[in-house]
Design a protein around this nucleic acid. Structure first.
Length: 437
RNA sequence: CGGGGCGUGGCGCAGUCUGGUAGCGCGCCAGUUUUGGGUACUGGAGGCCCCCGGUUCGAAUCCGGGCGCCCCGACCA
């Protein structure tokens, strides 16, 4: 992509409404545009990151055996009356009336709808287990949306729903998602800590929140310091392996949100306890027959008699992750994208547009990197070096390849790693080899 | 919903108290200049001053009503 024609409205100054660093940087980097309180348009740069995160989530869900489908954003109130949540959910649910005066709503979650789909088609225990998910926009009419996409009213969520014949199967489904979540967040360069959590309005008796530590996190969290020092996934099994063992071993290490933490009975010595702020990026629930019972989702068991299915649900805040990653990875100059989610792999900076040698070298590098499958943002604008460096730092591209007349005279270009600031001079060929290696 | 604050070119703000030609910085456009970390100068474009009503010869400014947005609290991916 040539920056001269890329829609990237970066800002030099920070809009006043943005209070936390991720929101400020997302606005300054031209990633999002607010359209109403808690509702945002995703501009091209932000959209690229959102899609990358979505892709990782999808790959890991598929690897864990979940199957993707897509349910609508608008739902009928009738389903929610069946589960009893139409009244329970309160004002957070956006209620809509259609032209025939039918009660509709913009889905805040999909337990009812997926249960309805399940019960329509699945009739035998032989078809279980099943885990279905989608990645779809949700709307929750928060009392106070804030912090940009961190707590928007409209947000993109991956929600998965598992169906099992018994609680042993359901727990195994839960543990598979538990592992999938750890893998998902690790791939994004995040250290997410699973914490025992309240089940809230979703209901149920087993639940973990996945929390990443960041100063601007909305809730206080407590965990053993081992969490911050070791790789949770070291020794993790495959999905057909000993999930129970991994789950037991992982959850044995203390970690709890404020609501669940009681200093009086905390098993961790004070010296080993980390007290921090956290951002919730995922939440998993096992809730048994909470929905299958009122909605009559039963299958024939081995003896032919009906058995209510055991369910769980598993959410990841996809749009929130964009902000959460920035909270966890930035500096004074701007965003530092982890490679896996970066909107571009390489930022190619031409220091002097119009200089024949410089233009030729840039075009050549741009063509070769692109041909090799790299996403390259080529800053071919007729600008001075200063703004180019500043913009590339701001939008956080992981590698900066700087090409200028001065270096070309001595046969070198400069390669900079955004995360460390480390810069090396090397030949164009060597730079290509390093970026493609 | 309770408490606090804000609404003036794209962004950041002044002007409002004390009514009288709508301003500054950044950005944008043109030209000159400069050229390895947001160059300097000159010229230019761009504003229903959130909306409606009232007071007044005259309202960004005063009065009434509405709308929108932000921050602090309880709820949530």
């Amino acid at each position: 992509m040539r920056l001269s024609s890329f829609f990237l409205p970066t800002l030099k100054e920070t809009p006043t409404e943005a209070q936390i660093v991720s929101h400020r940087l997302m606005l300054r980097a031209g990633m999002i545009r607010q359209t109403s309180a808690g509702i945002y348009a995703w501009l091209p740069l932000g959209h690229r990151v959102l899609k990358n995160i979505e892709r990782i989530v999808r790959e890991e869900q598929n690897a864990a055996g979940a199957q993707e489908l897509l349910m609508p954003t608008i739902q009928s109130a009738d389903l929610w009356r069946e589960s009893g949540r139409y009244d329970d959910y309160g004002k957070e649910m956006l209620r809509i009336t259609d032209r025939h005066d039918r009660d509709m709503l913009f889905g805040p979650t999909n337990e009812e709808m997926i249960t309805d789909i399940f019960r329509a088609f699945v009739k035998s225990y032989k078809q279980l287990p099943i885990n279905l998910y989608h990645i779809q926009w949700k709307f929750r009419d928060e009392i106070r949306p804030r912090f940009g996409v961190m707590r928007g009213r409209e947000f993109l969520m991956k929600d998965a729903y598992s169906f099992d014949i018994d609680s042993a199967g359901a727990k195994r489904s839960y543990q598979a998602m538990f592992l999938a979540y750890l893998r998902t967040f690790a791939r994004m360069g995040l250290k997410a800590i699973p914490m025992r959590a309240d089940t809230g309005p979703i209901g149920g008796d087993l639940s973990h929140e996945f929390i990443i530590l960041a100063e601007t996190g909305e809730s206080a969290v407590f965990c053993h310091k081992d969490w911050t020092e070791t790789d949770v996934l070291a020794g993790a099994p495959g999905y057909d392996g000993d999930l129970q063992g991994f789950f037991d071993q992982t959850t044995a290490r203390y970690a709890a949100t404020e609501e669940m933490h009681d200093p009086a009975v905390c098993p961790v010595a004070e010296a080993d306890l980390v007290t921090a702020r956290g951002i919730e990026v995922g939440h998993i629930f096992y809730f048994g027959t909470k929905y299958s019972k009122p909605m009559g989702a039963a299958v024939a068991g081995p003896d032919g008699s009906p058995v209510l299915v055991e369910m769980g649900s598993y959410g990841i805040g996809v749009s929130r992750l964009v902000a959460a990653i920035i909270e966890a990875s930035h500096d004074d100059a701007g965003i530092i994208w982890p490679d896996a989610v970066a909107p571009f792999d390489v930022g190619l900076i031409s220091l002097k547009k119009g200089d024949a040698a410089c233009d030729a070298a840039c075009e050549d590098l741009y063509a070769k990197l692109s041909a090799a499958g790299k996403a390259v943002l080529y800053d071919d604008r007729d600008e001075r070096p200063g703004p180019k460096f500043a913009d590339m730092d701001l939008i956080g591209v992981p590698w900066h390849l700087v090409v200028g007349p001065r270096g070309l005279k001595s046969g070198v270009v400069e390669l900079k790693r955004r995360a460390t600031g480390e810069r090396i001079e090397l030949s164009a060929e060597a730079a290509l080899a390093k970026l493609l290696g």
